[in-house]
Computed example of a mutant assay.
Amino acid sequence: MRAALAAEMAVPLDRTFSLRQVRSIREVRELSPVIELSAITFPSGSAAIQPDQSRELAILGTAIKDLIVERPGEVFLIEGYTDAVGAAGYNLALSDRRAETVALALTQYFDVPPANLVTQGYGESLLKVQTLEAEQANRRATVRNITQLLC
Rank of each mutant, 00 (worst) to 15 (best):
Q50V: 09
P33M: 12
A63G: 03
E74K: 08
A93Y: 07
E27V: 12
L67N: 07
S95M: 02
A47F: 06
F42R: 00
S46T: 03
L57N: 08
E27Q: 08
T41P: 12
A63F: 01
G73V: 06
T62W: 05
P33W: 13
G61F: 09
I49V: 13
S44V: 14
R20A: 15
V75A: 09
G80H: 04
E79K: 10
N91T: 02
G73P: 01
P72T: 05
E36C: 06
R29H: 11
E30K: 07
T82K: 02
T62V: 06
R71P: 00
A88L: 05
Q50E: 08
L94H: 03
I68R: 00
L57R: 02
I68H: 09
S44T: 15
S95D: 03
G86H: 00
Q21P: 01
I35P: 10
R20E: 14
V28T: 07
I25T: 11
D66N: 13
G45W: 09
V22P: 04
P43D: 15
V34A: 13
R71K: 12
T41Q: 08
L31V: 03
E30I: 00
T62N: 14
I25V: 11
Q53Y: 04
A48F: 06
S32F: 00
T82V: 02
G73I: 04
Q21N: 10
L19K: 11
I59W: 07
G45D: 08
V75H: 06
I78V: 12
G61P: 08
T41I: 09
E56R: 03
L94D: 01
G73T: 06
A84Q: 12
N91P: 06
L37P: 10
V69R: 03
G45R: 07
A58L: 05
Q53M: 07
A58V: 14
E30L: 08
